[in-house]
Nucleic acid binder design. Structure first.
Lengths: 146, 146
DNA sequence: ATAATTTATATCGCAAGCGATATAATAGAA
DNA sequence: TTCTATTATATCGCTTGCGATATAAATTAT
């Protein structure tokens, strides 16, 4: 048995598990809003800056456009956002929040931070721990992205 | 704009991105072995302890059995493992490695650790950083699991 | 300007994940 | 023992995520 191949020695398995578990922790609040976690990510991108082409959203989320295109199509069907062809570049589809999509920001703000705080209150990590975690994860992301 | 809803302040988005990027980094080696990343996780579980019921594999990977069942069915079709009904408990399906599945451990050992080392060599994190990362992630996982 | 290349979306196919539900086998209660 | 509840798998339906490919628009090269 090679030590390197033990599950408990894999940083990747920890990331994979932690990511899935945190997504699961978000699910009840997101279900109340009628969206999924990746849809919530798209909303966060658009709340920061509305009217972005599919490509910019994909780059921001480190996703491929063949993931984001169907994602925003589903969100359009839900009435959360709209798409229209770009003026300068006709290849682009500019994604814009509808009034519904915009109004979801306040609801998310009321629901999510407190609920996630409660959910993680049993976790012994301190602010500095999350800060450190964020820094290390950013290094890994920077190294592997593109 | 609420600070709490900014993408850059989300630990969950970092976990989600880092997890996907690391999985992507594994992909070339796993493709050479003819498997996917979740299939590799199942193999690691079985290399540590062969002949386990679906349920034990699922619990070890923090996955639901409705994810693991189709996963091992696909791996059975690939000739990597076999399934047979449990002796004591007839509801169980005991999953066992075939010779092919067992022999993949050496190939994985030759391919993966060095390649991943190379891939992460550009990352400025030290052994202690990964150690710390692992501890913090374990706390998050422990808090959120079940 | 015309041709070749690149870029922005989109579509297709397949493997995960997971909620909901079904089924058979086991365990526990009356 | 017989009825009920729990447990182990499995199936279904839907959303992701992504490699491969297609198409149209824009850019670059000749």
């Amino acid at each position: 048995m090679h030590e390197e191949l033990k599950l408990d020695n894999q940083i990747c398995f920890r990331l994979y598990s932690a990511s899935r578990l945190i997504t699961q922790a978000y699910t009840p609040m997101l279900t109340a809003l009628g969206i999924t976690y990746p849809q919530y990510l798209v909303l966060m991108v658009l709340w920061e800056k509305d009217n972005q082409p599919v490509n910019d959203i994909a780059r921001r989320l480190l996703l491929e456009t063949n993931t984001v295109t169907p994602l925003v199509q589903r969100m359009e069907k839900l009435g959360i956002l709209s798409r229209k062809q770009g003026d300068k570049d006709h290849r682009q589809q500019i994604v814009s929040l509808t009034q519904t999509g915009k109004s979801m920001e306040e609801k998310a703000y009321e629901l999510i931070p407190t609920a996630m705080g409660d959910r993680l209150s049993a976790c012994p990590l301190q602010i500095e721990d999350y800060q450190m975690l964020a820094e290390k994860l950013d290094e890994i992301i920077k190294t592997l992205k593109r």
